[in-house]
């Protein structure tokens, strides 16, 4: 089977300007992926499915990933010569920049005809707020139907061209998208006797005088 670099080169040859970048995977699994621009993703997917050397006819897994905004602080050190003639001091300059967040959809493709795989492709949205539309690959691989609905339900990515895009795991009237990193759970707390960390913080808000959940209180009370 071809390496991701070879696939990318052929892809760019067939779809110039499509924007395909190999995303290296540092883990020992060495499963590198190809990030594709959403513009011509459906044509590229059809090509991946029908190309005689690849024949990726089986889309095994569609995953949504939430990459929130990250603040990256870069430190640049510029050596400044010491006027007194001593060793040069390094003046450090810190620049902050915000790496914009996005929602990402990862497709794991295998070939049942040629029995190889996986070829992993990634589609990224513009940001996490208003540019959240990606082309749906359900017309290419029917297995994406339910899985894209799940990514829509849990992450909020809108798939253009999906035959039936509605929530699948949460109920239809549910608001918000639970798998996002900034999801806030509804305030429906129930008392937990062995609360820890975040749950304990919630308990303290709800029950200002915490109930005595210590051993001494229940001495002698056998279950």
């Amino acid at each position: 089977m071809e390496t991701p670099e070879q696939i990318r080169d052929r892809l760019l040859a067939n779809f110039p300007g499509a924007g395909a970048v190999v995303v290296a995977n540092p883990a020992p699994s060495a499963q590198h992926s190809i990030a594709i621009g959403p513009g011509r993703a459906r044509e590229i997917a059809t090509w991946l499915r029908d190309d005689p050397a690849l024949r990726l006819d089986y889309c095994s897994n569609v995953t949504g990933v939430d990459w929130p905004e990250k603040e990256i602080i870069e430190t640049v050190g510029t050596p400044a010569p010491d006027p007194a003639g001593g060793p040069a001091k390094t003046a450090e300059q810190k620049t902050k920049r915000i790496q914009p967040g996005c929602l990402e959809v990862v497709y794991h493709l295998y070939s049942m005809a040629l029995r190889h795989g996986p070829v992993i492709i990634r589609l990224r949205t513009g940001n996490r707020t208003d540019q959240i539309t990606l082309p749906s690959l359900t017309p290419v691989w029917r297995s994406c139907e339910f899985q894209e609905r799940e990514v829509f339900d849990l992450f909020g990515v809108v798939f253009a061209g999906h035959p039936d895009l509605r929530r699948i795991l949460m109920w239809d009237e549910f608001k918000d998208h639970p798998m996002r990193k900034d999801y806030v759970e509804p305030d429906d707390y129930e008392w937990e006797p062995t609360a820890h960390d975040k749950v304990l913080a919630k308990a303290k808000k709800h029950y200002p005088a915490e109930p005595a959940a210590t051993g001494e209180a229940t001495e002698g009370a056998k279950p």
């Binding site: 995977n25 540092p26 883990a27 699994s29 794991h108």
Partner: peptide, 10 residues
């Protein structure tokens, strides 16, 4: 703590 990266196992 595995090092950063990703894997799909089936």
């Amino acid at each position: 703590r595995p090092k950063p990266g990703e894997a799909y196992g089936r």
